[in-house]
């Protein structure tokens, strides 16, 4: 139920007066409400729950956390 899925924000628009954007989930594209992540810009990964972006994913924090546990297998994984 609290499932939230990361996706790449493609562009910004306004739908029914609400900030909105197209978000790609591995190629599946949905219109997502961005009212709760006004800082998100195209190219950012956002975490989406029930049609709303609830967090802009912080790549620096992601890399730091993985590095702190020595899980560097991912560094070779590229973008």
């Amino acid at each position: 139920m609290c499932l939230a899925v990361p996706g790449e924000l493609l562009d910004l628009s306004t739908e029914n007066g609400l900030p909105t954007g197209r978000v790609s989930f591995g190629g599946v594209i949905k219109l997502i409400c961005l009212a709760y992540t006004p800082e998100a810009t195209p190219g950012d990964y956002v975490l989406v729950h029930a049609g709303f972006s609830i967090s802009t994913i912080d790549e620096t924090e992601a890399v730091n956390r993985l590095a702190s546990f020595g899980d560097i297998a991912l560094q070779g994984g590229g973008a």
Partner: peptide, 20 residues
């Protein structure tokens, strides 16, 4: 990063399990 596959890496999981 796409924030999914990086977190399903078997080798990393094994290392963490060993550390635990």
């Amino acid at each position: 990063m796409k924030f999914v596959d990086e977190y399903r890496d078997q080798q990393a999981a094994k290392r963490l399990a060993d550390e635990i």
